[in-house]
Design a protein around this nucleic acid. Structure first.
Lengths: 146, 146
DNA sequence: CCTAAACCTTCAAGTAACTTGAAGGACAAC
DNA sequence: GTTGTCCTTCAAGTTACTTGAAGGTTTAGG
């Protein structure tokens, strides 16, 4: 199947969008992408609007939106009255998630940095019989247990 | 099964460590936790060393180490010559991952913030027929495709 | 003692978001 | 025609849990 007048095979679409063929089929399976037309030999034929939709999906995924969120966003993008407010709310909720995750990761970075530095200090004479770091891991300084 | 002289049922261990019973069984299944003794009625009996090991595992998971990394770390923690250098290397590799992820998330936060602000600006007069944000998503400014 | 509730067991499948592999057909280039 | 690449569907694998079914045991209260 050669690409003519905007008609794309799945492999060509995959290359054009950076989304793997199996993933494209997966998205179709879960209803995120509409079922495309087929050739007489049953191969999928995609057009430019399919390509745009897939790019949209990929971008949303890149942004870290879950499949369900992407589903919502995609639905909003094609609804007659595109409701920017809803989109904004979804994005904002996600932004909140991202900020929480950032906070976590910053704390983690700090812990790990201390960890590695402590490890470097403890091992400056070579491997020790009792690694202090393990004690640190096994005995929480701040008991985070519920 | 009541908790006496350090003997813990799985449920008690779960409460003591914040790790769910099914997860404890899962860890045993995948060899991360040793198989514990059993009662005459086949219930698991854990002791303090099991508890410490589970806390260790949980802490490593909290740090974001994968199960395989935790497996390595746990192995190192009980080896006769505890090799702090290897621990440090594992932790350092993970720290590198965390930093990369932080970088990603910061960029994402920036994008999403701009996204939400743009959305707020576009919708200040209420829902628009053409949401500019969708166009932004569908048309990458920087083409990140391979 | 009985009963009900809570706990235990194993086994298997579900979750999320893909990814891989088997088996077989179609297409393109030489 | 042949070979290599692409296509199809179906199903299972990946990672790290989580849930649910079916059945047994323990604990607490009447």
């Amino acid at each position: 199947m050669n690409s003519r007048s905007g008609m794309l095979s799945i492999g060509t679409l995959a290359k054009a969008t950076g989304v793997a063929s199996p993933t494209i089929r997966y998205y179709e399976d879960i209803g995120l992408l509409p079922k495309p037309r087929r050739t007489t030999s049953d191969q999928r034929i995609y057009d430019e609007s399919d390509k745009e939709r897939l790019i949209f999906i990929r971008r949303c995924r890149d942004f870290g939106f879950s499949i369900n969120q992407v589903r919502l966003l995609a639905g909003l993008s094609i609804s007659p009255d595109q409701n920017c407010r809803e989109v904004r709310d979804i994005a904002h909720a996600h932004l909140t998630d991202v900020r929480a995750k950032l906070k976590e990761l910053r704390a983690l970075e700090k812990s790990l940095t201390g960890f590695v530095e402590q490890c470097d200090a403890a091992c400056s004479g070579g491997p020790g019989r009792e690694c202090l770091v393990f004690k640190d891991i096994a005995k929480p300084e701040n008991n985070k247990c519920c």
